[in-house]
């Protein structure tokens, strides 16, 4: 069995894993980080989105072994305990979630978008989220939440 060592939310973990273990199951079942969700399980819905070495990826379509040596950020690691990331605050303030199932993936994908495009247009936000599906169809407020975060981050800088 491959032995993997990786950093998740700043903390190093080393485990022997089955070759077939998916990264999302490693995060949820081995590390107990259940903020990353499994939605469609076919790389369509984006609920499992995390950052692998700073880039948004779908953790249901990656083996844990592929992430050996990488640095991962999940929704739990986006802001220090007790604080909200501007995106988390935006989703709260703008009612960007209804059932909340897609929210971690939406936020992680939006964080990737804002990292290389800090002031996106509405169209750019909608295109940036093409890999994330909200079954409540609450897209309008999700876009507003991301606009809120972009504005707030711009003020903070």
């Amino acid at each position: 069995m491959p032995k993997i060592s990786l950093t998740v939310n700043g903390k190093t973990h080393t485990h022997e894993v089955e070759g077939r273990l998916l990264l999302v199951h490693y995060l949820r079942d081995t590390l107990g980080l259940t903020g990353t969700h499994v939605g469609c399980d076919t790389s369509s819905c984006g609920a499992c989105t995390i950052h692998l070495d700073g880039k948004a990826i779908k953790s249901c379509s990656l083996l844990a072994a592929q992430a050996d040596g990488s640095s991962i950020t999940t929704i739990e690691g986006l802001a220090p305990d007790g604080e909200l990331h501007p995106l988390q605050e935006g989703f709260k303030e703008e009612h960007g979630l209804q059932c909340g199932f897609c929210t971690p993936g939406m936020i992680m994908c939006a964080a990737d978008l804002l990292s290389h495009n800090p002031d996106p247009s509405e169209q750019e936000i909608r295109e940036g989220l093409e890999g994330n599906i909200c079954r409540c169809t609450g897209y309008h407020n999700i876009v507003r939440a991301i606009q809120y975060a972009a504005q707030k981050s711009a003020v903070a800088v």
């Binding site: 790389s43 984006g46 880039k55 779908k58 990656l62 990737d112 978008l113 093409e130």
Partner: peptide, 9 residues
């Protein structure tokens, strides 16, 4: 192709 996440992998 796909979406942001797919294009990253």
């Amino acid at each position: 192709i796909g979406d942001t996440q797919v294009r990253n992998m």
